[in-house]
């Protein structure tokens, strides 16, 4: 009710502001004719800015040289052969397969940790009121520590394990947990949790059974989307990995960094394109689960 009167006032002030300029001044307000095209132009320019380098990279990875305005010498698969480890390349020790396999394993483990950690806390935050709920909520849905600071802390706290497989899994799980918690929260918010829970309880199910066999299956779409997003983000996590990694198999993001910083630009393009293909596949999967992209906003 109060928001309605507030909106009436907003409408009044907009109309009033328009009337006051009824004289010569209001002719200067050309938003009726220009507004929409200008906003569309901003959208167009931004989309071009975001997507042009992605497509150019993908195309350039099949080129031979890039000394003129555009890459030339298509179609050349040599960059891809180097990146995939089928040929020797400058500046890079081995192909993408081992690093990607290792990172996929780390990301999967981190994702499983996130299911165990994220689903229950998302549920208790949506369903219950409790002491310091707002603080817990803020802690849980925002990354507590930036990756670089977490890395310095890990180097000190776990000098032996910081850069190990276990250290990386814990780091990834913590850094990416907000994405799981938020997606699960938004899918739980669309259910009447109290009614569902009470129905199951009154039919004789224990609380644990209710949670595992009624609530969790109903939140499936949010959990799946959260898994996909946290997995993808962890698979290419760089800031934390770069600082803590010292020995053992080299994660995918460090392979990317080597190709970006030390290899010829076209080989870097091929390496980056590998990740583009993964992200594109992930977005296609997300679209089939009802999300438009890497967003935790539920589709209306």
């Amino acid at each position: 009710m109060s928001s309605e009167t507030q909106q009436d006032k907003q409408v009044e002030s907009a109309v009033e502001a328009g009337r006051q300029r009824r004289g010569g001044l209001h002719r200067l307000d050309v938003s009726a004719t220009v507004g929409r095209p200008v906003v569309k132009l901003v959208l167009g320019v931004t989309l071009t800015f975001l997507m042009l380098p992605v497509f150019v990279t993908l195309i350039a990875s099949f080129g031979t040289t890039w000394t003129g305005t555009l890459p030339r010498g298509f179609v050349n698969l040599e960059n891809w052969r180097t990146v995939l480890g089928l040929a020797e390349g400058p500046g890079v020790r081995d192909g993408v397969i081992t690093g990607l396999g290792y990172s996929a394993g780390l990301a999967t483990a981190g994702m499983l940790v996130n299911i165990v950690v994220g689903v229950p806390i998302a549920y208790s935050l949506v369903r219950y009121d409790f002491f310091a709920k707002d603080i817990v909520n803020t802690l849980a849905i925002l990354p507590i520590v930036p990756g670089v600071v977490l890395a310095v802390a890990f180097l000190r706290m776990y000098p032996e394990q910081g850069g190990s497989t276990l250290g990386l899994i814990v780091g990834y799980a913590l850094l990416k947990s907000p994405f799981m918690i938020l997606t699960v929260q938004s899918s739980l918010q669309s259910m009447n949790l109290q009614r569902v829970e009470e129905s199951a309880r009154s039919l004789g199910a224990s609380w644990t059974r209710t949670f595992l066999t009624v609530i969790v299956p109903n939140a499936r779409s949010g959990i799946v989307a959260g898994c996909i997003i946290t997995w993808t983000l962890a698979a290419a996590e760089f800031n934390f990995t770069y600082m803590v990694h010292s020995a053992g198999p080299r994660p995918f993001s460090l392979f990317l960094y080597q190709n970006i910083s030390r290899a010829p630009v076209l080989q870097g393009a091929a390496a980056v394109s590998v990740y583009f293909l993964i992200v594109t596949a992930v977005i296609l999967i997300l679209q089939t689960t009802g999300k438009a992209g890497f967003t935790t906003v539920e589709r209306k």
Binding site: L43, T46, L47, L50, M51, L52, P53, V54, V56, T57, A60, W66, T67, T232, L233, A236, E237, F238, N239, S253, L256, Y257, I260, S261, V265, G268, A269, V272, Y275, V279, V282, I283, Q287, A292, G293, F294, T295
Partner: peptide
Amino acid sequence: IVAMVSFPIALPGIVVGFMIVVLLGRT
């Protein structure tokens, strides 16, 4: 359009740096 706008969220910072090099670097 939503998918394209959200695409860069998945890119790690080094890849974003590379994107700028692709647009504005020496080549």
